[in-house]
Amino acid sequence: DIYIQVTRGIAPRNHLFPDVPAQLALTIRHPRQTPEEAYEKGISTLLLEDERWANCYIKSLNLLPNLLAKQAAASKGCKEAILVKDGYITEGSSSNVFAIKDNVLFTTPATRKILSGITRANVLECAQEQAIQIREQNMTPSFLKDADEVFITSTSVGLLPVSKIDEVKLPTFRPVTVALKHAYSLRTAGTKAYQ
């Protein structure tokens, strides 16, 4: 994985934009490996209140609420926290959330409340190519728990099925998830170590 960070540079701490040249940092790291079993069986998730700031569509280094949510999920044996704000699902602590109900693909709209990831965009394109109906609309926790299939997406895991939300076990038959994962894998073949 390659990460590029741009900062306003080094300056005295006075909470003003510094009048110095911008700095660019490039980080290269080996991608994390997700066990194949997680793709077959799905992962457990935990619903948590979304305590992040109002501009989640901006990717910044202010990840403390995300880290606290991910840690809270891990302490309960879950791989991801699914965040809820004002009664609606926003996204995961490090992922986007999708649900399938009656063969329709649902995901939270790309507003200021979520970081609309590139993997999310690719999965939506895969769904369009497969003529899967898409609805970008707000989902309640009860809607998510009652879905036929749920999965998350991110750069590091690709498309990963969810088998459990809180204490609710989801169906193990995931035909739309499997089809989308296959299409996404073909689309990104050779570009991801987890494929």
Rank of each mutant, 00 (worst) to 15 (best):
I152Y: 03
G9Y: 08
L61D: 15
E40P: 02
Q137W: 09
K101D: 12
S185D: 09
Q33L: 14
L64H: 13
K85N: 09
L170I: 07
N138V: 11
S163C: 12
L67C: 13
I114G: 02
G77M: 11
V20T: 15
V104H: 00
T153S: 07
R32V: 15
L67W: 13
L180Y: 02
P65N: 00
P141V: 02
Q71P: 10
I152R: 01
I118P: 03
T172L: 07
T34Q: 05
H15F: 10
D146P: 11
D1F: 10
N62G: 12
S94A: 15
W53T: 14
I89R: 01
T107P: 03
N62K: 06
R112A: 12
P175S: 02
A72E: 09
P35Y: 12
E149A: 05
K59I: 04
A25N: 14
K181W: 07
K79E: 14
I89P: 01
V157R: 15
A131F: 14
L83V: 01
A147L: 08
A179H: 07
E40C: 08
P31T: 08
P18G: 14
T177N: 00
E36T: 07
E149R: 06
T119H: 00
S163I: 10
N96H: 01
S185I: 05
K85P: 05
S116R: 12
D146S: 12
I132K: 03
E91S: 08
K145L: 13
F151K: 03
P31E: 13
I114S: 01
A189E: 13
I89L: 13
R112G: 09
N62C: 14
A193P: 14
A193L: 12
S116L: 11
G158S: 03
M139R: 04
D50M: 11
G92K: 02
L170Q: 04
L144M: 03
L160T: 02
E40K: 14
P18N: 14
T107Y: 07
N62H: 07
T45Q: 05
I10E: 13
A69D: 08
A22K: 07
V157W: 03
S94W: 10
E167D: 12
S75Q: 11
I114E: 01
K169L: 13
K192C: 09
I134P: 04
S75V: 10
S163G: 05
T188L: 12
L67A: 09
T119Y: 00
A110T: 10
I4W: 07
K164M: 11
S75H: 11
E49S: 13
S60V: 02
G117A: 04
Q133V: 11
R112V: 15
T177C: 01
A189G: 07
Q33T: 15
S95W: 02
A189K: 12
A22Q: 11
